[in-house]
């Protein structure tokens, strides 16, 4: 059984083109690759549940996975929950998602033609997306909490030279205003403490990705960034295995995640077989 969450396919579903997955010399679109994975899993008997697991209980035997109002009992679990886009954590950000708050410039930049927008973030993707947005928007307020961008020099030069991009370093986005649509933001200058209201119609959040491990806090050992600490595919809990980006700080490729998924599956099978022989 695969509890796949509502966004089956995870990060690759949001990648337009995957060029480095073996067997596809012409490349393949992310959504299509994930759909092929799904069909292959079903062919081999997997039952897919497209809902989020809301909680786990690894202390009981059998272990329990809670999904909405259902509880699934199992002897073994493979955690392969991947990464999720980091959010600011504001209530207004969730409320206005899709209503002016957005996370993918390539998807939605065209809808902000001749409108003022804000971009939050200071890495490569934030700066690239600010540049992409500036082709449509009439003003891009690039908000970053640190004194310098972490993006590469070339991108920093490009945003600095772009007349539509207003750079706000040492600033944080404090609040997004608007009931049904984004109307403005409040930014706070961390040096002076001054709060400014800026009229924008869109807010692009581009502050990176984090391991999707919220439901495993205090259930599995996590490092300071939220990755699951593992030894091979084994976690510290008997019968719980882990695979993919959720435990991988280094490689994070589709092909390496698939490989570690196979390793975890084989380890889980061996674990189940130990009940028969034991």
């Amino acid at each position: 059984m695969v509890i796949s969450g509502s966004i089956l396919g995870g990060q690759i579903s949001y990648t337009f083109q995957v060029d480095n997955y073996p067997g596809f010399p012409e490349g393949i679109s992310g959504p299509e690759l994930s759909e092929r994975f799904r069909l292959q899993a079903i062919k081999f008997g997997a039952e897919l549940i497209d809902k989020e697991a809301s909680a786990v209980d690894f202390s009981s035997k059998p272990m329990k996975i809670y999904v909405k109002d259902d509880v699934f009992e199992t002897k073994t679990v493979i955690v392969a929950t991947g990464m999720v886009q980091r959010r600011l954590g504001l209530i207004s950000e969730e409320k206005l998602l899709g209503r002016g708050v957005f996370v993918c410039a390539t998807c939605d930049a065209i809808l902000y033609e001749d409108k003022p927008v804000a971009v939050v973030g200071g890495g490569d993707s934030a700066l690239q997306e600010a540049i992409d947005l500036s082709k449509y928007a009439n003003e891009v307020n690039l908000i970053h909490r640190r004194p310098n961008f972490t993006a590469n020099k070339h991108l920093v030069e490009k945003v600095s030279e772009n007349p539509k991009i207003k750079i706000l370093l040492n600033n944080i986005l404090e609040e997004i205003l608007g009931e049904k649509r984004v109307e403005a933001v409040f930014v706070k200058d961390l040096k002076t403490g001054e709060r400014t209201r800026i009229h924008v119609d869109g807010v692009l959040i581009a502050i990176g990705w984090i391991p999707n491990t919220k439901i495993f806090e205090k259930k599995l050992q996590l490092d300071n960034e939220g990755y699951i600490i593992s030894n091979g595919t084994k976690t510290g809990v008997e019968g719980v295995f882990v695979a993919g980006d959720v435990t991988d700080r280094i490689y994070r490729q589709v092909v390496t995640s698939c490989g570690s998924g196979v390793m975890a599956a084989l380890d889980a099978i061996r674990y189940l077989e130990s009940f028969k022989t034991g």
């Binding site: 899709g98 209503r99 002016g100 957005f102 998807c107 939605d108 065209i110 809808l111 902000y112 033609e113 649509r181 984004v182 119609d201 869109g202």
Partner: peptide, 22 residues
């Protein structure tokens, strides 16, 4: 399809579309 023409895109914006899909 909001990418098919400038006019389609502008109609979507005029109807308050701020993200895809809507």
């Amino acid at each position: 399809n909001v990418l098919e023409s400038k006019e389609n895109r502008r109609l979507a914006i005029q109807k308050g579309v701020m993200g895809t899909p809507t």
